[in-house]
């Protein structure tokens, strides 16, 4: 049964991937404005425009372009960058480790912050701790990361001088970007852990555990938190997408050499094949993360494993 669920999820994720490739392609080609005009400027010679249009394959009908693009992408060929002339696949490979590093650090930081905050807030409900934790949560979701970034640079790098302002050299340089990217996620997670744990703590088996005389910390950690984990797992999977989206801005603020800053650089250089490929890679990462979350979920929770699709 478990493998059936996995198989079904993989098939549907495959469908989504093909859909994602088509959507990126169609949206970026249907929007008003001619990329050739944008790249060469309005006053370029018609012959030059035509040459670039042919070089990019833009002279063919859209469905044909899409079919060719789909075929090349499925073979792992993203084309070449107009700006640097290098294969785009190579550019992406150079940037992926930095984004993965930043994403993992932000996620780790968010979990480290969110669990203690969420658990304390639920256990000491309506106390000062609860109010403080939930205030942090509300602030965290309301501070945009492109403002939080400059603020943590101001405090951590300029005033205190503990961390480098930007760039990617050594572990210390990872701290400020990870704080910037992870704060919103920590805020959302803390809130979710609190409400999920509050639900679980009112269940009968918690009362039973207490009645058996189990120590309070044991009741909360072994019986409470463990059962509150399920909705949290789903949320982490879903939120990783916004983490990847937020990485675009955070990487730009800190000149962090990842996929996100590649998107912005490519937009500024009018290097559309690179924009398209980078957006695609981030979306694929998101689909993959959600697939893994789904499978993990089915593995953790037998109820999901044995469900029947209507």
């Amino acid at each position: 049964m478990f493998w059936q669920v996995v198989f079904r999820r993989v098939i549907s994720a495959g469908g989504v991937v093909v859909g994602v490739v088509c959507l990126v392609f169609v949206l970026l080609h249907l929007v008003p404005g001619d990329p050739v005009d944008v790249m060469l400027g309005e006053y370029a010679r018609p012959a030059d425009k035509e040459a670039l249009r042919r070089a990019l394959g833009l002279h063919q009908p859209l469905p044909r372009q899409l079919a060719q693009y789909l075929e090349r992408v499925l073979h792992g060929d993203f084309g070449t960058s107009i700006y640097s002339g290098r294969p785009i696949g190579q550019l992406l490979w150079e940037r992926i480790p930095a984004t993965a590093e930043l994403g993992c650090a932000a996620l780790g930081l968010a979990l480290l912050l969110a669990f203690p905050l969420g658990i304390l807030a639920a256990v000491y409900r309506n106390s000062l701790v609860d109010v403080a934790a939930m205030s942090f949560s509300l602030l965290g979701v309301s501070i945009p990361n492109f403002w939080l970034g400059p603020m943590v640079i101001l405090v951590g790098a300029v005033w205190l001088g503990w961390f480098p302002v930007s760039g990617r050299e050594g572990l210390l340089s990872l701290v400020l970007p990870a704080v910037t990217l992870g704060t919103a996620l920590a805020a959302i997670l803390a809130r979710m852990i609190r409400s999920s744990l509050l639900d679980v703590l009112s269940e009968d088996f918690i009362r039973t555990a207490r009645a058996k005389g189990a120590a309070e910390w044991m009741v909360i950690l072994r019986h409470g938190v463990r059962n509150a984990l399920l909705p949290v797992t789903t949320l982490v999977g879903l939120q990783l997408g916004s983490l990847l989206g937020g990485a675009v801005i955070t990487e730009t603020v800190f000149a962090w050499p990842g996929i996100g800053s590649l998107v912005v650089e490519a937009i500024q250089r009018r290097d559309y094949p690179v924009v398209q490929a980078a957006v695609l890679v981030i979306a694929l990462a998101y689909v993959l993360v959600n697939l893994v979350t789904d499978v993990l979920y089915a593995w953790i929770d037998p109820r999901v494993r044995f469900e029947r699709e209507p």
Binding site: V20, G245, G246
Partner: peptide, 20 residues
């Protein structure tokens, strides 16, 4: 489903970038 497979802001950045 396909739209939800994106971080929304990413697609908006790419679209705004291409449109100018």
């Amino acid at each position: 489903d396909v739209f939800l497979a994106f971080p929304g802001i990413l697609l908006a950045i790419a679209l705004a970038g291409v449109m100018g």
